[in-house]
């Protein structure tokens, strides 16, 4: 437990034999380290975005206008993006519950919740596809747009595209794990595999938090 008293455990853990991260299964340790590496990938993308946005002398298109939707004759800024954000948070919630039910050995509920997570993930990707379609039909290309700096489109397609690939891969990963849990492949374990896929899924949500703040809101 991470408490002030627990601080003393750092030296004990790092100084001990066999394992450094006590009680952490191999797969979970590996997933965490992978996510650390992936953090560096996304951070480099975002740093590149910051750099080109700052260096270009052309004005940067106003994201809040670009990503607005017209509802009942009223233009609502960032509407779709807001919905996507809520969708992804919802999926994170179902994921967290799936992990919880997994550890309670309630396999049925866990599988259902994983499937729900995958569903929300799929919805997210679909909305993203719609967003791409809409922007492309408005003339946004990776190399030009009608409003300002051309790096706007380049960054948009690259960053959301790379994130979208992560979501899609996550959906596939979730489905595979759901299937295998259902088949009973992990019955002899604690179902920590659900926590592992959960880590990946929450990470995808985490990245979106940063993209939302820096690309859409900034």
């Amino acid at each position: 437990m991470a408490s002030a008293a627990g601080h003393a455990t750092i030296i004990r853990d790092w100084g001990s034999d066999v394992t450094t991260f006590k009680g952490v299964p191999w797969g979970k340790a590996m997933m965490w380290i992978f996510l650390l590496s992936d953090t560096f990938i996304f951070s480099c993308f975002l740093t590149a975005y910051m750099t080109v946005r700052t260096t270009t002398a052309e004005p940067w298109p106003n994201a809040s206008e670009v990503f607005s939707l017209t509802v009942l004759g009223q233009s609502v800024p960032l509407l779709l993006i807001a919905i996507m954000t809520f969708d992804l948070i919802t999926s994170s919630g179902t994921m967290a519950m799936a992990v919880n039910y997994g550890y309670r050995r309630d396999k049925k509920k866990a599988v259902r919740l994983i499937l729900a997570t995958a569903f929300f993930g799929f919805v997210f990707v679909s909305m993203q596809a719609f967003e791409w379609y809409k922007l492309i039909s408005e003339g946004v290309r990776p190399f030009k747009n009608n409003w300002g700096a051309e790096q706007f489109g380049a960054c948009f397609f690259m960053i959301t595209g790379f994130h979208g690939l992560h979501v899609s891969a996550g959906v596939a990963y979730l489905l595979i794990i759901a299937h295998r849990v259902h088949k009973g492949k992990y019955d002899h374990t604690n179902y920590e595999i659900i926590e592992i896929v959960g880590l990946y899924w929450h990470f995808v949500d985490l990245v979106w938090v940063f993209i939302f703040a820096f690309f859409y809101l900034w």
Partner: peptide
């Protein structure tokens, strides 16, 4: 990190 032997 996670798979050393006893005493290592």
């Amino acid at each position: 990190l996670q798979a050393r032997t006893r005493g290592m």
